[in-house]
């Protein structure tokens, strides 16, 4: 117990590393390989965004929020539909101005939602065991999925951030044909980076942030020095709601706002397993690892598997993240940066 067993983790890391460079060793062109890796990193940024929401809530309230994906969908739906309706309601020009106003309104909606969830679901269930809380968030998931589609509609909607869909080509001098990067992905990465930075400042520099960290460390101690637990929970859920909104925006802009967003967001679960439930850096690193791993395995390993086992198509990315998380759970359940617990009797 005194020493962390790092052997298996290192072994798994080595296997992953070898798997990562294997395409190069197998003679894939470096330019294409980098392109895939970059694509994976960008997808990973999106996973990290959702995972961030999980970690925030888990740290502050010990709740494993299965509904984070539903919150992403709900926020994205609100944003897309408000941006569409606002020009007709208040005469604001369509496009970016409408989107900006919609973003503000959607933020408000997510805050109200956070308050409702805290009041209706969390407060009565305080001190229940984590599995019951997980199931409660499952209930919230279903409710939000249904509710969101009832008020916002259930078609596929667009979020237009005014960024051209044309890819940019970089490093043309180094590689033949250069490396394709989509501008959207770049913008998404910048937004994610700004968000993470903002959260870091919020946690380190503000009184609320300090209170949040105190609560994360020890609920009872925090309560005993007068930190209002209920308010902290509302704030954390509201912040998680805001993170969900940002994730929904960049994701929705990329893929369109639709029901599958909620399921895509489930990918954040393996991400937090990998990074550790309580670690923000872990969520980011985990997201990147899974994003890259998924893309590399889909693009390079997929065809090999299809050939070897005569498969009816690829789709490894549907399970790669989960199976990786499963392996990781076996060697280090607390994740890369998580804290280990000791049972007392």
């Amino acid at each position: 117990m005194a020493t962390k067993k790092n052997g298996p983790v290192i072994a798994l890391g080595v296997v992953l590393g070898i798997g990562f460079v294997a395409p190069l060793l197998a003679g894939q062109p470096l330019g294409f390989f980098l392109e895939v890796t970059l694509g994976g990193l960008m997808a990973g940024v999106l996973y990290s965004l959702v995972a961030l929401g999980f970690v925030l809530i888990f740290k502050a309230s010990g709740v494993f929020n299965f509904a984070q994906g539903a919150m992403v969908l709900f926020a994205a739906l609100a944003l897309a539909r408000l941006a569409e309706w606002l020009p007709g309601w208040v005469g604001i020009p369509a496009g970016l101005p409408a989107l900006a106003l919609a973003f503000v309104l959607a933020t408000g909606i997510m805050i109200v939602l956070a308050m409702l969830i805290e009041r209706i679901v969390l407060r009565p269930l305080v001190a229940q065991d984590p599995v019951a809380l997980l199931m409660a968030t499952l209930g919230v998931t279903f409710f939000l999925d249904g509710f969101g589609q009832t008020i916002w509609g259930s078609d596929v909607y667009k979020i237009d951030m005014g960024i051209s869909k044309d890819p940019t080509i970089i490093l043309e001098s180094m590689f033949q044909g250069g490396i394709l990067i989509s501008k959207e992905d770049l913008v998404a990465t910048v937004i994610a980076a700004v968000l993470v930075l903002g959260l870091a400042i919020f946690f380190q520099k503000t009184a609320t942030g300090r209170a949040l960290r105190a609560v994360a460390d020890d609920h009872q101690a925090a309560q005993s020095i007068g930190i209002p637990l209920n308010r902290i929970w509302v704030i954390v859920w509201a912040v998680a709601g805001f993170v969900a909104l940002v994730a929904g925006m960049v994701w929705g802009a990329k893929l369109g706002v639709q029901f599958s967003l909620a399921q895509l967001a489930l990918k954040a679960l393996p991400v937090v397993i990998l990074g550790g439930f309580t670690s923000i850096p872990g969520a980011i690193l985990g997201g990147l690892i899974i994003g890259v791993g998924e893309k590399i395995s889909e693009v390079f390993l997929g065809p090999v598997l299809i050939k070897a086992f005569d498969l009816a198509g690829g789709g490894i990315e549907n399970w790669f993240a989960y199976v990786l998380a499963l392996l990781f759970l076996m060697v280090r359940p607390e994740g890369l940066f998580g804290e280990k617990h000791i049972d007392r009797v």
């Binding site: 009565p124 409710f143 999925d145 009832t150």
Partner: peptide, 20 residues
């Protein structure tokens, strides 16, 4: 379509209700 959304909402609400 609305009915199926309603179904989701009822399930979700009931789960929370029973857990509490």
């Amino acid at each position: 379509a609305m009915a199926s959304h309603l179904e989701f909402m009822i399930f979700g609400a009931l789960i929370v209700f029973f857990l509490i």
